[in-house]
Design a protein around this nucleic acid. Structure first.
Lengths: 135, 135
DNA sequence: GTGCTTGCAAATCGTTTGCAATAGC
DNA sequence: GCTATTGCAAACGATTTGCAAGCAC
């Protein structure tokens, strides 16, 4: 899906900046930080400000059009792929990998039994990636 | 287990500060941040510095004597309970709850198939807790 | 022209760093 | 005495805030 349509789908009023940021997330599956998004879009939109990037990424995450990841202890990362999947971060190179996620029905059941309302599920794995192991 | 024994078990050289911090984690299951640990221990150890708290918490996490949680986007939290369990954070009040964790064998298998070495598994849930729902 | 969006600059705050003082063996 | 640990103050950097300017319907 294109960026414009995704914004509409999640009831976010489109703007040049919002489309560009959404598009960046959809075309770069690098789990970028706000700073990475800003730096890369600055070339195309020279007047873009970091504030707008922060505001927009928060808006996307709040409306469910993007995932806000806290897997990296140093910075918040974003993911335009909002389908269910788990994440693995390599402690050596810092790269974040996507992985299939299987949510245990037993786990969710217990959560519901406690009376909490769950809106987000994150499965994070940490370790050393294949590439760093062979280096 | 007492704090001193846990340090020994994880091969961490004990000191007054380290025992106090480890003890705080074992007796306060609030998933405190470094700042919370510091503020609360200042009374008992007036000369305690924040640097020591940060250094010690990092040491504990690196040696496996504590868990470093990134569930809260605003600050890193620590957990003295190193047994397998999942975490739920209430977006409204910020409180972190412990929950049983069931790691899917299928998920782990896929991870290993990719050749990554996993050292940590975190299951994070976000939403609104029972208490905040009734308020 | 009213309300939402953007952008700049300054502030905030959790965390890290440099380095000197201290404690333990 | 040597090494590891601690503590202070300063630095750092990601994120937030205040507010003025710009844009859209």
């Amino acid at each position: 899906m294109d960026a414009y349509s995704k914004l509409i789908e999640y009831q976010i009023k489109p703007s040049v900046q919002r489309i560009a940021i959404m598009n960046y997330l959809l075309t770069h599956r690098t789990h970028p930080s706000a700073d990475e998004v800003y730096t890369n879009l600055c070339q195309a939109i020279p007047t873009l400000s970091k504030t707008t990037v922060y505001n927009t990424l928060e808006l996307l995450a709040d409306n469910g059009a993007a995932l806000m990841l806290t897997i990296d202890e140093n910075k918040i990362c974003f993911d335009g792929d909002t389908s269910d999947h788990a994440h693995f971060i390599c402690k050596k190179c810092g790269k974040i990998y996507d992985l299939p996620m299987i949510v245990s029905a037993e786990e969710l059941k217990k959560m519901e039994a406690d009376g909490h309302v769950i809106t987000e599920v994150h499965h994070y794995y940490r370790g050393t990636c294949k590439k760093c192991l062979t280096d």
